[in-house]
């Protein structure tokens, strides 16, 4: 299930390939247009297929609509989530609260002990103090650390090469590793990170709508990549519900 947009369509295309690879039969495969006000008909149609795994790639307002509709309809697959944009922002985390439990979704950084790279604490402290004044996301876990890390990579490359020539700097970035606040970064031959760094996390033990809990570990458990795994998947989905 996904939005009619480039990101969502691509994510779904990937999900189809993976489903085939693991021998999963696809029972429902659809997209929805922007400005869909109500997702309950969609969720009911999915429920009627009796799907075990529900992969959703959605944009922020739709992610909220989907999560709410899933609870209103009572959809209980064995696994749920995937590429839902928006479930990383503080505003949505606190508003949805316990409804998030059990959802497995992508993320870029979460305050789990396995991801405490040098510098990240200081960075967040500085960011969060400013965020209140600027009226932006008060947590800053999702994109800001990566944005900062991009500039760290660029800065280190420029310092090492003593050059701002694009070719020289680019060559250096391709052939070296960098220590950043999101860990060690190495690029592969295709220009992407050598090993994928997108996290799969599961929301667990969220009891209320308090913002404070999301500053602490134990709410968004890293399942993948193995290297930073910080807990176990609660399976099936239903078991993670309060």
């Amino acid at each position: 299930m996904g939005a009619d947009a480039e990101f969502a369509r691509n994510a779904i295309a990937g999900a189809r390939i993976n489903a085939k690879k693991y021998g999963l039969r696809i029972v429902y495969d659809n997209t929805y247009p922007p400005a869909t006000a109500d997702f309950t008909p969609v969720v009911r149609a999915i429920q009627a297929t009796g799907a075990d795994v529900v992969f959703v790639s959605s944009y922020p307002p739709d992610s909220v609509g989907m999560v709410r509709a899933i609870h209103e309809v009572g959809l209980r697959p064995k696994m749920l989530g995937g590429g839902m944009v928006g479930l990383q922002y503080a505003a949505f985390l606190t508003k949805l609260g316990p409804m998030l439990n059990g959802i497995v979704n992508y993320d870029f950084w979460v305050p789990e002990p396995t991801l405490k790279f040098p510098g990240i604490e200081e960075f967040l402290k500085k960011y969060q103090a400013r965020a209140v004044q600027e009226g932006v996301d008060p947590l800053g876990h999702y994109l800001p650390p990566w944005a900062y890390a991009y500039l760290e990579v660029l800065g280190q490359a420029i310092t090492a090469t003593q050059s701002t020539d694009q070719r020289t700097v680019g060559e250096y970035i391709r052939t070296h590793s960098f220590d950043t606040i999101v860990g060690r970064v190495t690029f592969g031959p295709n220009g992407e990170w050598a090993t994928s760094r997108v996290l799969m996390i599961q929301f667990q033990n969220i009891r209320d709508n308090d913002l404070e809990q999301f500053h602490k570990p134990g709410k968004r458990i890293v399942l993948y990549p193995e290297k930073w795994k910080s807990g176990e998947l609660i399976y099936p989905y239903e078991k993670a519900l309060p």
Binding site: A3, D4, A5, E6, A8, R9, N10, T31, P33
Partner: peptide, 15 residues
Amino acid sequence: QTLIMNWDYVGGATG
């Protein structure tokens, strides 16, 4: 717009 979005030959919503 809906027709184009669902017409995969021209890229659909993916572009």
